[in-house]
Design a protein around this nucleic acid. Structure first.
Lengths: 335, 335
DNA sequence: ATAACAAGGTGAAACGTTTCGCTTTGTGAT
DNA sequence: ATCACAAAGCGAAACGTTTCACCTTGTTAT
């Protein structure tokens, strides 16, 4: 139905080779140029990129595999990434694995069948072997947020430990000693790192580490709420709480509001990643913010280096980005 | 590099046709079946879907074009949609046009070049002609959120007018007469509809429509904040405010918090689409919620009807979905 | 005049599948 | 034995591009 190069050839009397050359930026005689343009217009021709991909062996498509689309962390990065990739002609196939390792593996397989030229992934289980196979086939992979154990692979990570250290340090400097932390599941890379940062800070300020003040959640609103509530309802509650991800911060704020505690007088709170929520909260929440746009940007950069062959065979590159501190009135000196 | 069917043919001694048949679910002798499976495993063969697409003339790909990825409204719908489509073998190419009509047109072209089998779009300018051309080529298009004028096309819309009417009715029933509305830009479909609903309700309750209480924003946090602030700082402020989208609701809440106004005693507020924010606000905000999952689901359904040819040539289908009322303590009777 | 060369153009072979029409083989009924 | 028929397999032609090696022309330097 749709017009093909053959139709243009017929209309202009030129050969396929010439038309292809012109379409790909080659030189042809001005008269022919005009004839081709005219034919294209008349036929409403657009290139069939499937055929092109088959021949060139490049799909000009990047797979993106993330835990969940309804999540500012992912979408903010992807929005940036999609833009950068689009600018140089790549499209992005996005797959959401709903935090499910089985789906993660399944959709990864789906993407590789699709002949993607590159993959960007926020791993959960990791699929180490599948990824290794991709790399063997020279398909670049860039990981976000967490590395995959035992896989030597480009990645863009945030300096979680340092960010955590700095946030908790601020609480310590304000005089707090009973500082609680709501962290993610043990064994999850970012959760472990953020917890280390917390411990680093306490050690640095010679505050004894009290295991009772360390609460392990599931990085979701629910556990943020429950764990914070449990802490606040104790006989001797902490005077400060550091919450280590976006979702749990929601939960923590809710628990605080519910108890009508005033920040920072009755409780100091530092959260994670909350630009949106922060537009409406009073006092403004002090938060550690991951540099989402910069992550997207850096991912694109690493990917392009590989795709354009500039870094064809060099060793894996891992970029560590600094988190951004956003101040707010939700913490302060002990009163 | 990667193995092809030819390699399997060589290894098994069978012909391409037989292998293709088996791969697509046809019957072959048990012995051959085993031989093929064994060869596939040994070679690590996976089908090249680019080649398949070229031959079958179906890319098994759906284009998704939205104003902005960092937006719960879009991503929630897309997450659902991506899932449904994936289940039957389709992948989704997502393009974000950053609320820019030029990019909208450009990325639409990009998608059509990619030989998409279908398109899901939240239109801004609409690109009526490009869409009409797609439909001519029998490529199904499903619109979300707003129709495109002059284009007869499948769409999934929300009953905005009705939802708005009901929300404002609640305010009226609570005794309010000075009810303000923060609406979107004039001329934008959803904004107009929601404003009609507001007016419908006032008329129904015999409240005089006061143009001064109708504020036109840009559907962003900034204007939600500014317009609400302006209303509240008047000599004679409204006693109730209805805010008609997600972003502007953020702004409105901020303005209210800033002025330390207690809801519902000093002000009644009804917002739009706020499940997340609502997890932390006290009192809980009463909101009109668009049924995002249901929208995603319905879009998938319409699309599939077309793709599977069930609805091959029948007229455009428009589905109108009901918004969901979520109660909250942010509004109440006049005190 | 002629050799050397650049510029523009061409035919045909790929890329990895699917599919059409045909042949071969095996089975059971006559 | 023969025939009819179903099942399984096969060869070859597509799908719409790109690209290689080659050809034709026209220009310039000698």
């Amino acid at each position: 139905m749709a017009a093909t190069m053959k139709d243009i050839a017929r209309l202009t009397g030129l050969s396929l080779a010439t038309i292809s050359k012109y379409l790909n930026g080659g030189h042809v005689l001005p008269a022919n140029q005009q004839a081709i343009d005219q034919a294209i217009h008349q036929l409403g021709y657009t290139v069939n990129s499937v055929a092109r991909s088959l021949k060139t062996r490049r799909s000009m498509t990047i797979g993106v595999l993330i835990p969940h689309l309804e999540n500012v962390f992912s979408t903010s990065i992807i929005s940036e990434l999609e833009d950068k990739l689009h600018q140089i002609g790549y499209s992005t196939i996005i797959c959401d694995y709903h935090h499910d390792p089985a789906l993660e593996a399944e959709k990864l397989g789906f993407l590789t069948d699709r002949q993607i030229d590159g993959l960007v992934m926020m791993p959960l289980s990791g699929c180490r072997e599948a990824l290794a196979k991709l790399k063997e086939r020279q398909i670049p992979v860039v990981l976000i947020d967490r590395p995959v154990e035992g896989l030597d692979c480009d990645a863009v990570l945030v300096k979680n430990r340092k960010a955590s250290f700095q946030a908790v340090s601020r609480l310590a400097e304000a005089g707090h000693e009973r500082i609680a932390v709501i962290c993610g599941p043990q064994g999850v890379y970012t959760a472990d790192e953020r917890l280390y940062g917390y411990k680093d800070a306490l050690t640095h300020y010679r505050i004894k580490i009290d295991e009772d003040l360390i609460q392990y959640g599931h990085y979701d609103t629910e556990s943020g709420y429950t764990l914070t509530a449990r802490l606040l309802d104790r006989q001797k509650p902490p005077t400060a709480v550091f919450v280590t991800n976006h979702e749990m911060t929601y939960g923590a704020v809710l628990a605080v509001h519910e108890r009508d505690l005033l920040m920072p007088d009755q409780l100091s709170l530092i959260g994670f990643d909350h630009q949106l929520l922060n537009q409406v909260l009073r006092p403004k929440l002090a938060v550690v913010m991951q540099p989402l746009k910069q992550i997207g940007h850096t991912v694109a950069e690493l990917l392009l280096n590989r795709l354009t062959g500039r870094d064809h065979q060099c060793p894996a590159q891992v970029r560590y980005l600094d988190a951004v501190w956003q101040n707010g009135g939700s913490y302060g000196p002990l009163s």
